[in-house]
Design a binder for these strands. Structure first.
Lengths: 259, 259
DNA sequence: CAAATACTTCGGTCAAGACCGTAGTGTTTC
DNA sequence: GAAACACTACGGTCTTGACCGAAGTATTTG
């Protein structure tokens, strides 16, 4: 009846490191098998099995059996948004401990966030689109303008498909940059387009993305982003489009073993 | 470095029933003392003190000392949004266990959600505003139209104040109705207006709101909502504007004692 | 059918942490 | 200054649940 216990139940589920790792691994929208999730969460298959049962029962994960394996994915975008929110809160949390992030530089630069792009690149893209009045965006609401519609049309990004039964355009607060990037159907369409045209590639076993040489060129001409676009510089760093390419393959997988 | 552990830490914090109760109690934006929070969470003051220290350290709560008491409030709207999100997920979670809600009828009808209205009434209001093209709204983005701007002007709702340094208009998925209501500056302004003109009143020790007779009349004329507005009826219920007024004072406070 | 694979169930160990009683510290009231 | 109040620190109890080894159930492969 009271809402406290209800949210506690769900939060406690997410609050276990092993389960949180599983959920994080699914944040990019992929579906993974029980074994794979056991591996990324760093626990034995038996333990993982228990965790996955709980997460499924609670409705956080959706399950598809196929032969002798079981595929799991996040049950709904709402789950992904809660996880996003937790990252944001976790970042802003420990008062002045912000921006101490060492490592994960690849992730900060470009990554997927459920079904769209995130990281410095995504924030810059969002900035440009707003700057050119293709999109109206504040921290919480988004709207595509007529000019924006034709811009995407010319670019060959098909928005009609994506916008059928889905949210059209929304901002998503970037937990590493602390500024919004594009989510929703528009955000997803941009990621699709970028992957399809080899602007970016997935890094194996990670949510990280790397920008290809083609991507550097195309992003520059398409969005007018130069090699080293101006960043908000809250920590003095400047990112280049290809940043993190060389420095880190940075496989995100956890090592198995006891917690 | 990996994001899993980080979100687990925050989620685990929310995942304790006592702490979840505290956070829930603060969802309406109030500031409460340590004692009050101990009471609503149903634990002894010593225990509450420990919980509050953890929540503050983690940056979920902001603390203001005043004399011999300590006032706590949610540290940021982001925290409120995570809590909202958890409620939504908790609702949609247990597969077919939805809409079993007994009790909390007052809450379902009208309540505050951080700083704006939620519940059936808020959803209906949002519906009407959309219907009359005062607001463009989908599940994730919102925009006030020119017509809407003058509508609120005439109504005497001051949007200029609120929109200074704040998100202007955004939808917030209603966890009891599972459809969006208005949040952001516009949502907050509407709640302010409703409270100021005695359309609704706070229920003591609860997030619930009751609609006054004045409110029933004014809401009807202002938004064209009749006594029993059509609901989406996913559970066959129909709510009236004054629904829940008589049936329940339904004080939300928890009884103290062991968990 | 046997072997291998993918996953689950069961049982027992163990550590984390929620809880409160007692005993403090700081602040206001009388 | 004493008493009441609001809150915090410490110490010990006890429950919860995460973990893995061993064994068991489906499903595919040879």
């Amino acid at each position: 009846m009271d809402t406290g216990p209800k949210i506690a139940q769900v939060a406690a589920l997410i609050g276990d490191p092993a389960r949180a790792n599983m959920l994080s691994a699914l944040m990019d929208g992929r579906t993974l098998t029980a074994s794979e999730l056991a591996y990324v969460s760093g626990v034995a298959p038996q333990t993982a099995s228990g965790h996955l049962a709980k997460l499924s029962d609670a409705g956080l994960l959706a399950l598809a059996k196929q032969g002798r394996r079981r595929y799991f994915r996040l049950a709904s975008p709402h789950v992904a948004r809660v996880l996003e929110g937790l990252m944001v809160v976790a970042q802003e949390g420990p008062a002045r401990q912000r921006n101490l992030w060492r490592g994960g530089e690849t992730l900060r630069h470009a990554r997927t966030c459920y079904d769209h792009m995130a990281g410095r690149i995504a924030v810059v893209i969002a900035d440009r689109l707003v700057q050119q009045s293709f999109i109206l965006l504040d921290e919480d609401g988004g709207q595509l303008t007529d000019a924006g519609r034709s811009f995407f049309d010319e670019l060959g990004v098909d928005l009609r498909l994506a916008s059928k039964r889905r949210v059209f355009c929304r901002p998503c607060l970037d937990w590493s940059e602390r500024r919004p990037h594009l989510a929703g159907a528009v955000g997803a369409a941009i990621l699709d387009h970028a992957l399809e045209h080899d602007w970016v590639e997935h890094v194996r076993d990670s949510r990280a993305l790397v920008v290809t040489p083609v991507g550097v060129r195309e992003l520059a001409t398409t969005f007018g982003i130069e090699g080293a676009p101006p960043m908000d510089g809250h920590d003095g760093r400047v990112g280049s489009l290809s940043g993190g390419r060389v420095s880190a393959i940075a496989v995100e997988s956890a090592s198995p073993g006891r917690r």
